[in-house]
């Protein structure tokens, strides 16, 4: 179908204020409608484009909904085994220290199966940027309970709601990694409103700068939605996220450099 447009007279190159980043491919994101993954990809691509780092970037995307990140981002990408992206990125950055290296991981990946790799990469202070998408669920496999699933939250493997006594507590990985000496910048953001998008983008830009300066691990959690897994419309899921996820996973910086 043809694009739909607003007032045609205004659509001139000199009036352009926002367009899809050239660091994204033309492929349609495989994410469900309204999923924050797409927005996070977009912002990451914009940051890479604006920093002029397309030719210097190596991304690592392990198993989860974002395993196909390489289909969408026009940079060199390694698809990694479930949970192992921080180990993979460790080697990339140490062998190619001039390159910009990021991982892009979900909550099951980063906070369950990859806990050891996450903690040790952060503790060594590997000069990488870790993007952690926390939507409290295993999206790719169909909505099972994740390490970050909230108490009482329903999933296909906690159909009566997460029972803390039986299933343990939701894990605040970002708080944990903020305590490690190797992390330099740790923040928790979201991408569901324009203001939050701006903040997340700013955080990523900082992480890019810190990596250039070899400051250590930059860890950006993005609390996100999973409309399909949560069985809500995208707009409802964003509202539910604000009301339920944010109180437990409050947005803001957890660790910032002493002197900026």
């Amino acid at each position: 179908m043809k694009d739909v447009t607003g007032i045609k007279e205004i659509i001139k190159p000199e009036n352009l204020v926002y367009k899809r980043s050239s660091v994204l491919t033309d492929n349609v994101f495989s994410y469900c409608p309204g999923c924050g993954h797409g927005t996070a990809h977009r912002i990451l691509a914009e940051v890479i484009e604006e920093a002029g780092l397309q030719s210097e970037t190596i991304g690592v995307a392990p198993v989860g909904c974002s395993v196909l990140l390489y289909e969408f981002m026009n940079v060199d990408v390694q698809q990694a085994a479930h949970g192992r992206a921080p180990a993979v990125a460790t080697a990339i950055k140490r062998l190619l220290p001039e390159k910009f290296v990021f991982t892009y991981q979900g909550d099951g990946d980063l906070a369950a199966i990859g806990t050891a790799e996450t903690i040790h990469a952060c503790n060594r202070g590997e000069n990488i940027m870790i993007i952690f998408i926390n939507n409290g669920i295993y999206g790719m496999t169909g909505g099972q309970m994740a390490p970050t699933t909230l108490e009482g939250m329903k999933s296909s493997t906690s159909p009566y709601g997460r029972d803390i006594k039986l299933m343990g507590n939701p894990l605040k990985m970002t708080e944990i990694v903020a305590t490690l000496p190797g992390t330099y910048f740790v923040t928790r953001q979201s991408v569901h409103t324009p203001a939050n998008v701006k903040k997340t983008k700013k955080a990523m830009k900082k992480a890019v700068e810190y990596q250039k300066l070899n400051k250590g691990t930059c860890f950006i959690e993005i609390v996100s939605n999973c409309p399909s897994g949560w069985k809500m419309s995208p707009v409802e899921s964003n509202k539910w996220m604000e009301e339920n996820m944010f109180p437990f996973y409050p947005l803001g910086d957890l660790k910032v450099p002493a002197v900026e």
């Binding site: 192992r84 180990a87 080697a91 050891a116 790799e117």
Partner: peptide, 24 residues
């Protein structure tokens, strides 16, 4: 030459994956 003691054998082989994928 980079030499690193990993946190596990699992991490070590995945570091090898990352390095090998850079053609190293």
């Amino acid at each position: 030459m980079v030499v690193l003691q990993a946190e596990s054998e699992v991490a070590a082989i995945n570091m090898v994956y990352g390095g090998a994928a850079c053609g190293k």
